[in-house]
């Protein structure tokens, strides 16, 4: 990073903290602190909903996924618009009209206090950990590619976020989310422009897409019905819909956003904004990853994008082997570049279809040869470093940024990555503090707490959860595989929490005992499915369906049983 990049990055941090603190005026009472006194416009709430979901992992991981695997990950989001429509018609009016502050407060009104407390504790456990990962993932990447100290990087992201979230509550979180979303979108647009301009003379955008498409990277839809396949149109539409129903309908970090809107219809509009925009936005981020792949076909790419163990391998007894692989890679990469240029030329002209077929076959072979060398290099790094979790997909986009983006824009891109991490974690910290204070502290420890006291304790809870996230980050940074564990950890609970809300809204006879026992059974069943050897291969998107169905079924049966007993 050059001085201008530092100026952009530091300028961004100062601007975001200053505007967050400015938004913190007039948030002295609990309603203003937790719900912004229901004064926010739908578009700001809608952008905040999207910003909370769009973390740095999305920005860097999704482009990496586009690079390695094409755009088929977009199917993950196919259920989202369906879920938004269902939520707008069912759960959102219930929440808004009942005047609750947290999603779990509604569960006490409908069932009992034990169901509310269990749901809140599940949320705190799962989101407290994931908040740490939201900060850790970009911090690890930035510290490796920029050579920064990992703890300092985590604190540089965490501390400003804690500051404005603590002072400003939900209002500061929402307005900074809007600004951070603008930074992310601006930076991504700049990256796409640099990617397109970086294609060689004579190779246009459509040529580059044809070349990437010849390897299947633009095939978005998979119609096979295969439970073990992670992303298909069916897992996306059905599993994804259940996931979105649970995430947007029952997760405090999302519910709190749309409870701040001026009216019920504005709450709904803020969710429908995601329904309209989310799939195209994710498709564009994935396409940026595919474009990065096309870019690196025509420009020199490193053999491995994650340099963390390179020095270790070079100093080991297998340094000569590594050097030989590097030389082989450079030769294969050059061969592939020639094949890609030939294919781009052949795709551009309709003169000779036979020529295009031959060029395509040659390019496919050349790409397979490059992938083969890379796979051997990864195996060697794993062998020498004993780091089984080593992967470099998440480093592709940052490598492009640092190597090929012009000065100034590098700072903007790093600011965008930091921005995504801050906007996602601020929403989580705010929601964690709200659930801690309203569902646990005020409900169980101090029901007579005054408004001022509740706001004060919320500020302390924000600091607690922020520091907890930073500690989890430092801990997770040492163990790369932990990040994946925490990421899938959330999906073990989503379906069961959704099941409780389905019982609340859809099953008239459901009671507190049914909901409580149903929820525990659902969580246990999903854990068994996730870890039992016979069912382990089932894709995690289906856990949401399984959890919701089990909770609804068991909850309904137990409710009937306990009612008969009582009668």
């Amino acid at each position: 990073m050059r001085p201008l990049d530092w100026i952009v990055l530091v300028g961004y941090l100062v601007w975001i903290v200053w505007s967050g603190l400015r938004a913190s005026r007039r948030t002295a009472d609990a309603d203003a602190y937790f719900r912004a006194s229901r004064t926010l416009p739908w578009w700001a709430v809608g952008l905040s909903v999207m910003a909370t979901q769009l973390s740095a992992i999305t920005l860097v991981g999704t482009t990496g996924q586009g690079y390695a695997d094409g755009i088929r990950f977009v199917q993950f989001y196919f259920g989202l618009p369906i879920a938004m429509v269902i939520l707008c018609l069912t759960i959102v009016p219930f929440f808004y009209r009942s005047g609750v502050y947290t999603a779990y407060e509604y569960l006490e009104r409908r069932f009992d206090v034990k169901t509310r407390t269990l749901a809140a504790i599940v949320f705190l456990a799962q989101r407290g950990l994931s908040c740490g990962v939201i900060i850790a993932a970009p911090a690890i990447i930035l510290s490796i590619v920029l050579g920064w100290n990992i703890v300092a990087t985590i604190l540089a992201i965490g501390v400003p976020t804690i500051a404005y979230t603590m002072f400003g509550g939900v209002k500061a979180v929402t307005w900074t989310d809007v600004k951070q979303m603008a930074v992310v979108l601006g930076a991504m647009t700049a990256a796409v422009v640099v990617l397109i301009l970086g294609l060689p003379h004579g190779v246009g955008l459509t040529d580059a897409l044809h070349v990437a498409g010849s390897l299947g990277k633009l095939r978005a839809i998979d119609f096979r019905f295969d439970l073990s396949e992670k992303y298909t149109i069916w897992s996306g539409l059905i599993g994804g819909a259940f996931l979105s129903l649970s995430y947007f309908g029952c997760d405090q970090s999302q519910v709190q956003r749309y409870l701040t809107a001026k009216s019920l219809d504005e709450s709904r509009q803020s969710l429908l904004l995601s329904g309209f925009v989310k799939i195209p936005l994710q498709a564009l981020i994935l396409l940026t990853g595919v474009l990065t792949f096309a870019f690196f076909l025509f420009n020199r790419a490193p053999m491995l994008f994650n340099p963390v163990h390179e020095a270790e391998v070079r100093a080991s007894g297998r340094a000569a082997e590594y050097q030989a692989l590097l030389e082989e890679y450079q030769a294969r990469d050059a061969d592939r570049r020639v094949a890609a240029e030939r294919l781009a030329g052949a795709e551009g002209s309709d003169l000779n279809p036979m020529l295009a077929t031959l060029a395509r076959a040659a390019f496919t072979d050349a790409d397979a040869a490059v992938r083969d060398v890379r796979a051997r290099a990864v195996a060697l790094v794993k062998d020498v470093s004993h780091d089984e979790g080593y992967a470099d997909v998440n480093y592709v986009f940052p490598t492009f940024i640092l190597t090929y983006m012009p000065v100034g824009l590098v700072g903007l891109m790093i600011a965008a990555i930091v921005s995504a991490a801050m906007s996602a974690s601020s929403g989580e910290m705010n929601a964690l503090a709200t659930a801690t204070v309203l569902d646990l502290y005020k409900r169980h420890l101090n029901p007579r707490a005054t408004d001022a006291r509740v706001v004060l304790v919320s500020k302390l809870a924000t600091v607690f959860w922020g520091l907890f996230a930073c500690v989890v980050s430092v801990f997770a940074a040492d163990r790369g595989s932990l990040i994946e564990v925490v990421n899938t950890f959330g999906s073990l609970f989503y379906g069961s929490v959704l099941g409780v809300f389905i019982l609340a809204l859809g099953v008239k006879r459901a009671n507190g005992d049914g909901a409580f026992i149903g929820m525990i059974t659902g969580i246990v069943v999903v854990f068994v499915v996730a870890f039992h050897p016979a069912t382990r291969s089932i894709s995690y998107l289906w856990y949401n369906v399984i959890g919701a169905v089990v909770v609804t079924g068991v909850g309904w049966a137990v409710s009937l049983g306990t009612q008969r007993k009582a009668a």
Partner: peptide, 30 residues
């Protein structure tokens, strides 16, 4: 602005169009 059933239908219609476009992109650039 009051939301009508048409707005919800529009969300789903846009989704179908987006999925169809993605399908077309996959076939066109194959």
């Amino acid at each position: 602005m009051r939301l009508s059933p048409r707005t919800y239908a529009l969300v789903l219609v846009v989704e179908v169009l987006v999925i169809a476009t993605l399908y077309w992109i996959g076939r066109h650039f194959a």
